[in-house]
Amino acid sequence: MTKQISIPGKRSRIRWLPQDNSLLKYICLAPAVIYDSIFFLLPLVFLVWIGFWSVENYRAVPGFSLANYSDIFSQFFVKSRYAYAIAQSLWVAITTTALGILLCYPFAMALMFLVPERLQRLLLVLAITPFWTSYILRLYAWQTILNNNGLLNTLLIQLKWVEQPVTIMFTQWGTRIGLLHYLAPIIILILYLVLRNTDRSLLGAARNLGATQWQTFWRVILPLSKPGIVYSAVFGLIISLGDVLSGIILGGGTGQSVLGKFPLFSTVILNEYAASTNLPRTSALATILIGIMMIILVSGLKLTESES
């Protein structure tokens, strides 16, 4: 059998290269993409779309109208007073997240630098333990602890540190404690991992150059852990904004805070949905909440992008 020899220098292409897009790639990605599209994106898009429906004769009518949103914004400061709820949610979320990071950071630091290597893993697992219990039941337990005649107050009065029980229940401080207890394990984990991945030689170098412990922390460790802080902040804010249970169980629905006695936005949404009178408008409210979270998420991503 004769074969033509190709003239050298001709353009040639291998039909399959490892980096190429092959059938395998599409088959591997397809299940996840399809599943998320149908059971995640679709419901969310649907939810947002319902927010643009109109209500006629107490029935929801598919369509596209801004009636719900204009209704919501007309009630922003009066009647339903959504603006105050949003402000309350943001206030609680921001303070909780800030507090959470402030409190968890030293914890992660202590875990990283004080605890012997072998014990670190065990203690980290213990710190994540709260995850393995039911969130609702934990809140219920906190109720027992924070009640006016609960564990904490009983202890404080016995120790004669206070005379009257300290009211924590039905204030936003109660909400914060519940949220903190939910967020703490994850924030500790994130910060610990970030600290663990810090180049140790940088710390040694700083000390060699005469930096004090404080300076080493402030000028070397802290800047390097910035991505971890941003992730924790984004996570904390989004979870806090979306949480309903802590606000209701510990905050009593309309917990008292510095801003006043306002409900959380998430609670408002839940209540409106449970009342089931105006689905399109409730969906519009939920969309607003999603919008706020997207802004936080995107800002967080932009922040970490600019770092790297």
Partner: peptide
């Protein structure tokens, strides 16, 4: 990654709608 960030509240509402 996003599904883990969306609060169960919203996911519940959205999902039940579908």
């Amino acid at each position: 990654i996003v599904p883990i960030l969306v609060p169960p509240l919203i996911l519940g509402v959205a999902f039940l709608g579908l």
